[in-house]
């Protein structure tokens, strides 16, 4: 066991993969000499050289497009998009090319690339550097989507992503890079595509992912003091989506909240809510409640930013209201 940050766990995943497989290479803006805008790739350029840690001009569409071509030519590119907010720049290469090549070409070839990026609030970075745009990705068949919440998952999910036969969008959370955990990297984690049940209780299920897992866990700890026992499900990957685990717990408990940092409308939380309603209808005591970001852009103001997205206090408050009337259970 050693204490390591989320950032360094990501770097370790890249380092280990690059050490094991010469076909793995990194391509993106400031990934080499600079070490990555958030420092994830720091040191890899010195270790592996300029040919495997490829600094690019500021050309997001061509970064993704080059990764697509390299993957088709047999390499294992890990492209970095500095902020998920720039994903719109790349949507043709990602959504029309990477996602559809296997299908359009009748299964002749896949695009085994990873697009690492980061999103979310917490740095007063403003409306164009703070978004949670996972729904854009989840809405596109052919793209896998992973969003690690823990340090162990930062490592294991990234390793798993690099082993997938299909393009994976890997969204880190900028607010988690400095988080530390004691991690035994040899200890097993759930396989790719399986959710992790971070805490188990009989009164309420919170289905969540990425940084909101920590808000849910903090809220759950406070709720426990009041005798409310919460199950917290960390989805880990949104595609594949592990509805089996969600269903098992929702059917057992009957009360469920979906917590996400993204804006509420037409988002991942909406999809999860719809699925839970459809698939667990007879087991629900209350409607599925979405706790998500406000339907507004993110402000630079610390106060406005913090209150634009779910906080621990808000998650706890909604949870208490949801379980207040437990006569049905």
């Amino acid at each position: 066991m050693s204490e390591i940050t989320y950032r360094d766990a990501l770097k370790k995943a890249l380092f280990d993969a690059m050490s094991e497989d010469d076909d793995v290479f990194i391509i993106g803006e400031e990934v080499g000499r600079y070490g990555g805008a958030y420092g994830v790739t720091k040191g890899l350029y010195e270790e592996f050289g300029a040919a495997r840690v490829l600094d690019t001009p500021i050309s997001e569409p061509a970064i993704v497009g080059a990764a697509v071509g390299a993957a088709m030519a047999g390499l294992r590119p890990v492209a970095e998009l500095m902020y998920v907010d720039f994903i719109g720049m790349t949507m043709d290469q990602l959504g029309n090319q990477a996602a559809k090549i296997r299908y359009m070409f009748g299964g002749q070839i896949g695009v085994p690339m990873v697009l690492r990026t980061q999103g979310g609030t917490g740095r007063s970075a403003g409306a164009q550097h703070s978004q949670s745009l996972e729904a854009y990705v989840m809405h596109t068949p052919g793209l896998r989507l992973a969003m690690p919440a823990t340090v162990a998952d930062a490592y294991h999910l990234l390793r798993d992503a690099m082993r997938q036969p299909d393009p994976v969008v890997f969204i880190e959370h900028k607010g988690l890079y400095t988080m530390k955990e004691d991690v035994d990297f040899s200890a097993s984690v759930p396989p790719w595509g399986k959710a992790a049940v971070r805490r188990e209780g009989d009164d309420l299920v919170i289905v969540t992912y990425s940084r909101q897992v920590h808000h849910a866990m903090a809220a759950a700890a406070e709720l426990a003091k009041k005798g409310i026992e919460t199950t917290v499900i960390d989805l880990r990957t949104l595609n594949p989506l592990d509805m089996d685990t969600v269903r098992d717990h929702v059917e057992r408990v009957g009360r469920v909240m979906v917590v996400a940092e993204e804006v509420m409308t037409a988002g991942v939380a909406a999809e999860l809510s719809a699925r839970i309603h459809e698939e667990c209808f007879d087991f629900l005591h209350e409607p599925v409640i979405r706790v998500a970001g406000e339907d507004i852009p993110i402000s630079v103001s610390v106060e406005l930013e913090r209150n634009s997205v779910p906080t621990t206090e808000f998650v706890r408050e909604v949870a208490e209201r949801l379980v207040a009337d437990r006569v049905h259970s």
Binding site: V64, G65, V68, G69, A70, M72, A73, G74, L75, F105
Partner: peptide, 21 residues
Amino acid sequence: LGANAIVGGGIPAVVGAGLAS
């Protein structure tokens, strides 16, 4: 490596294929 229905959409793939070559 594919025909393309997006004008210009197939162009950057040759950069990646060129890296591999």
